[in-house]
Amino acid sequence: MESVPHRKTRNKHYETMQGPSLPVLGSVPIIPHTFSILFRLSGPRTWVFPSFSFILGYAVGGGGLVSQIGIGIAVASLVTAATNIVNAYADRKEDATNQPQRLFWLGQIGSRQITASLVVLYSSAVVLAIYLGPLFILVLGLGILNSIFYSLPPLRFKAKPFASLASFSGALGLPFLGGLGVGGSLDLLNPMLWLLTWFMFTYGTVKNLPDYFGDMKAGIRTSATIFKNVKNAVLFSCTLLSTPFVLLVSFVSLGLLEPIYIADLALIPLFAFIILEMLKAKDAAGLEKAHTLGFFYAISFLLFTLVLTSPTVQSLVMVLGAFLWTLTVAKVSVHSRVEFRDWEKQRRKRP
């Protein structure tokens, strides 16, 4: 039997494999894809509402500094982003039907990273607000409370139909008031404040329509689910959505608003088109499409009103920028709401 010579062997040192070192926010690691998910959940197209409501209030109050406008836009966008993230997290039950992709995104980042992001968003808004004065900070404090308790207990305004719409109307009313506050005045009787607040109150009924079936299943009471069928909910929303025009004409007739604002009636053909789309919708996907069109109508009302208030080149540039931002967000599909809701059909189409 042939012997095999003994071979000396060395003990090899094997290094333990470690993942890449990630930057951290407190004790929470920052993973690159977290930012893209949070951006989706922050509802970037909705940032236009509070941003331009602030600009409108700032213009009505006589302000004109570009630096203050920029800070106001940043604060409005940060708080709105936080509001949408809180809302997405709080609505996990109904989103299992309404927006199931949101559940996937939330699961990808986890509650700790969501909490950390909210701390950053709210605290950044407060720090920036210091440059806009004490009255603005006061309004911001109310806005943050409204932002949190719109979705979260113990108040959870959105669980009560009227309180939900009243809270939602703050998305235009409070930023406008903040814009006035930068100029040193909180005029609670300003007719434009009430026109914008009521406009957003009525628009809130539109955004509830696509979620009718999921909210009914989850037992959530909204301005839509208080009706036994979606058709009645649509009729109620269409009727209420027409009332801001009545309020506008009344304010102009009473001399509370300048006659130039009657030009907002030029949006009635667009409004009529939205109403027809809402009435033709037969399912959640159709209602979501109508809601998307309604969104563009709503920002058009706001932006057109801004141009009537301040017919300058600067206003036109900002308005064009707002439309460009909104269309870009829609084009690249980074908003958290998904218009096409046939989830099973989408899955079958995937390779």
Rank of each mutant, 00 (worst) to 15 (best):
L186F: 02
A322N: 07
L155S: 05
G141N: 11
R156D: 09
F323Y: 15
R156E: 12
H291V: 05
K349Q: 11
F236L: 05
I144R: 04
G110C: 06
S185M: 10
R156N: 12
S336P: 01
A82F: 01
G178M: 10
L276P: 06
H13F: 07
T46Y: 04
F296K: 09
M192P: 03
N146I: 08
A218L: 08
I73M: 08
P153M: 01
G141D: 04
L327P: 01
A272S: 07
L65I: 02
K8Y: 15
S237V: 10
L270N: 10
G72N: 00
T239E: 00
S164C: 10
H291W: 08
Y150F: 15
Y122R: 03
D95S: 15
L195M: 12
Q101W: 10
A59D: 08
V48K: 09
Y297W: 05
S77G: 13
R350W: 08
L140A: 10
A159G: 15
L180V: 05
L106E: 06
V329C: 09
R112F: 10
P20M: 03
L132P: 13
K158P: 04
Q314N: 11
S36K: 07
I137K: 11
S242A: 14
F323S: 02
V48N: 01
G183S: 15
T309V: 11
I71P: 02
T239P: 00
L276H: 11
L118M: 08
L140Q: 03
K282T: 15
R7S: 12
L287R: 04
V127Y: 08
I299G: 06
V139F: 09
L287N: 07
K231Y: 13
V206F: 04
G26A: 09
Y212G: 08
L177G: 07
G255F: 02
G170P: 13
L155P: 06
L270W: 14
S300L: 08
F227C: 07
P161H: 07
L188M: 13
L265P: 02
R10Q: 05
L56C: 06
L65Q: 13
E15M: 01
G72P: 05
P259W: 02
K331Y: 05
L235A: 05
D211G: 04
S237E: 01
F54C: 09
T83L: 14
L254F: 09
S53V: 02
